[in-house]
Design a binder for these strands. Structure first.
Lengths: 228, 228
DNA sequence: CGTAGTCTTGAGTATCCTCAACGAGGGTGG
DNA sequence: CCACCCTCGTTGAGGATACTCAAGACTACG
């Protein structure tokens, strides 16, 4: 259903090695694919859980996953959506701090045993550079998340969310956006209530900024209207 | 005035290399100090600016810095406070995406030319591992930020902010907290208005959760009351 | 076809933002 | 040394926004 998509952030391609050609992170790291194990997950199935030993890194091949945590008051918070080509599971801790579950049925994830990848990186500096680049991309995603959460109004948050999803999901400038996640997921991602997400989408629709093909297929009519 | 403090996140010490002793990141990377240049900055002075070439990494030696950006509507958002021992400036982009300025007068920062550090990492896998570990710590900080921003109520945000500052600033469990930044900085960090920050602190004070030695020295009377 | 989960809309209330005023503290200049 | 200015911090009043609770429509799936 979903094609495997690599390197959604082309603007983030490693340009810092002036002598080297600009290559995709996935390409840079093709050599670690030899130690990867691929898993296929059902909807809601867990990839790893909080407190699980931090002994693998991961990459979404197709589908989507959500990284989440449960607050003490019972509210769920989604820290990140993981999309095809994106690596995750990096932690400075011995254990993972979040749960990661598949958002859609049939999500495929590549698992990399960390010690074996570390060993590869030890033997080949280029792999080490690739890993660093990947973790820098993760930092970039998280900082972008913080900017979205930093908006004052829910309408801005939802607009910025749609813009982020367009950015991350379609390499071509396709104005049609497929939101694989539920409204509840979006709400827990933006830290607003489900009703507020729904209302904000309605406002954007009434304004003519977007239109619905169906509940999860959205056409972006006025991309610039989403930015604020 | 401020002592140099390394490795504030001891819980994040590299425990993933079972055979190796658990060493501090700063220690792991002592070999890169040979290429560092130390700068001393005045209050508000810029360490790097948006669109500056991404050719250095940095570490706060003493004092504090803020990483910020300006939204299109003129509002400033602070993405991170940088504290002694913390590394920053990692980006997958060719340019930096944020401004970083010193919060207090006399902030000292160590600057590492990226290409020279990369070259060192190429020649010594241990340095590469240390760099990865450092970027993982940065990821951990950003995820913690997202959790704080994810709180619904301003009082929770401010409480979580104080808890984070206690966590990050005092290695010993000293209940006195020095907030080097202004209320405006806190507001832009938590994405609430200055007035709301002020009111929340007042509420916490009236509740007996905290008390003020002066405007920027806070005693934490009931740490658990901050968490929610 | 029925059930459970999802999505939307409405009503009422609580929170937070904006505008405004005032006080405290530090620095500068007369 | 004091007056003045400027920034920062606090508090109040009013209004806008978002949350909670509730109900109903729609969808997916068995």
């Amino acid at each position: 259903m979903l094609a495997t998509k690599h390197e959604p952030q082309d603007a983030f391609a490693p340009g810092w090695q002036d002598g080297a050609p600009r290559r995709q992170a996935s390409e840079l790291l093709s050599s670690i694919e030899s130690v990867s194990v691929v898993r296929r997950l059902g909807r809601g199935e867990q990839i790893y859980g909080r407190d699980d030993p931090n002994d693998h890194w991961y990459r979404i091949v197709s589908g989507m996953a959500r990284k989440s945590t449960l607050h003490s008051n019972g509210r769920r918070q989604i820290v990140d959506f993981l999309m095809p080509g994106e690596y995750f599971g990096f932690s400075a801790c011995r254990e993972h701090l979040f749960d990661v579950e598949a958002v859609v049925d049939g999500t495929i994830v590549a698992c990399y045993p960390r010690r074996r990848v570390e060993a590869l990186a030890d033997s080949d500096p280029e792999i080490g550079r690739g890993l660093r680049q990947i973790s820098f991309q993760s930092i970039g995603r998280l900082q972008a998340r913080i900017l979205i959460l930093g908006h004052t109004w829910a309408l801005e948050k939802v607009g910025a969310f749609l813009a982020e999803m367009v950015e991350r999901s379609s390499a071509d400038s396709n104005p049609t956006l497929v939101l694989l996640m539920s409204r509840y997921d979006i709400a827990d991602y933006l830290s607003v209530s489900v009703e507020t997400v729904s209302r904000a989408l309605t406002v954007l629709r009434r304004r003519g900024s977007i239109s619905f093909v169906n509940k999860h297929h959205i056409k972006i009519l006025n991309p610039s209207a989403l930015q604020c």
